[in-house]
């Protein structure tokens, strides 16, 4: 079992939900990440179509950590924190791998048919804010935010 920590604090009074998991950087744990992502999204009241986009986007972000930050090393850690509030659905993904170069990350031209380059499109479709935390010194911290307005998911 590689799920090191699962903490669910449903703060009913404030409407906030916080969940933190840590998994090894092995692709077999992506299914677990998807399950937790979609469950937290469901608790937040997100409609199914949006949940599916968010699930795919978080999966893609974690797959990028495995492939690029850890270069396929399956023995490293990936931390994923979910926070749901009135403002929206935030996911923070932490790794201790190679630094990403955000300015070089862009999806492929969708009019060109070739393998790869779709993950970035899926992530940007699901989240309004996609931002690496430049303050993190070792590894990467990716912030993903799906906003909601007047309590409703956009």
């Amino acid at each position: 079992m590689t799920l090191h920590c699962l903490r669910l604090n449903g703060l009913a009074d404030t409407g906030k939900i916080r969940v933190t998991i840590k998994v090894l950087s092995h692709p077999r744990y992506l299914a677990l990440v998807r399950t937790v992502t979609v469950t937290v999204a469901e608790i937040s009241g997100m409609p199914k179509s949006v949940r599916e986009h968010v699930k795919l986007a978080v999966d893609e972000a974690c797959a990028n950590v495995i492939r690029h930050a850890y270069r396929g090393d399956s023995g490293k850690n990936i931390g994923i924190r979910y926070e749901v509030s009135e403002k929206g659905f935030e996911v923070v993904i932490d790794d201790e791998g190679l630094k990403a170069a955000p300015e070089k990350i862009k999806g492929r031209d969708l009019s060109k048919v070739k393998p790869g380059g779709l993950g970035t499109h899926f992530i940007r479709r699901a989240f309004d804010i996609v931002k690496f935390d430049a303050r993190k010194k070792k590894g990467n911290r990716l912030h993903l935010v799906r906003q909601r307005k007047d309590g409703k998911w956009k």
């Binding site: 992506l30 797959a63 393998p115």
Partner: peptide
Amino acid sequence: SYIDSSGIATFVE
């Protein structure tokens, strides 16, 4: 029931 970009890339290849 699910496909991600690696699956899509596999079919493109």
